[in-house]
Design a protein around this nucleic acid. Structure first.
Lengths: 104, 104
DNA sequence: ATAATACATAAGTATCTGCTTATGTGTTTG
DNA sequence: CAAACACATAAGCAGATACTTATGTATTAT
């Protein structure tokens, strides 16, 4: 099930970091690895998990592989969340505050 | 980190089912277990994980423990998602369609 | 008081996960 | 062509996870 793949993919903090980086601009696998504390194969494996969940997609460019966000994956989260709309903080401002707090 | 707890908690399909049930009305642990394919201790353990992520909260009532949705947990997901607003399907109708598809 | 009920915790175990090093595949550069 | 590069895959392993059965702790019913 795709919903399961998406939530399992997002359960890992390293994958959420990768996703966040890609959301700020597509880049290749090596660029993604820079500054991260895991090996190249680990990044590659994480990318495979994210891709399988349709959270990202790839486009080969010679010996490079460019990765970018695939809206399909996050749409699953949005849809899931929409089912619990009653429980969201009512105002969007509250969300923005929460976001600010979460930037460490 | 609470974000990590939330996403890890939601990674398990049984826990998402429990959460869904609670979203449709608070109930005690035994009621939650009914119809599910896991043992009573398993349910209890899942509830502890959900509670630790602030996705649910409990209220003891004699020998019963009533569980209900805690908006704090899902607010974390909403906040996370808000950061990727660019990638959501633009119209809420698209979300509703997706939701319909996801009802098996 | 005794038994039953509601739930949590303990301990053990099979499976899953994320990581590593080693190696493979394809592409580009010198 | 040979070497370097970008990335994926294979294999192995330590730790996490989800489950089980057994037992513990309150609370309520008889």
């Amino acid at each position: 099930m795709i919903e399961d793949d998406v939530f399992k993919a997002l359960a890992d903090p390293t994958r959420r970091t990768i996703y966040q980086r890609l959301a700020s601009g597509s880049m290749n696998a090596s660029a993604l690895g820079e500054g991260m504390q895991v090996s190249q194969p680990a990044i590659s494996q994480h990318l495979a998990v994210l891709r399988n969940a349709r959270l990202i997609r790839e486009e080969r460019d010679g010996r490079f592989v460019n990765y970018e966000v695939d809206p399909q994956g996050i749409a699953v989260v949005a849809a899931w969340l929409a089912g619990y709309r009653n429980y969201w903080p009512a105002r969007i401002e509250a969300l923005k505050d929460l976001l600010k707090d979460m930037d460490q």
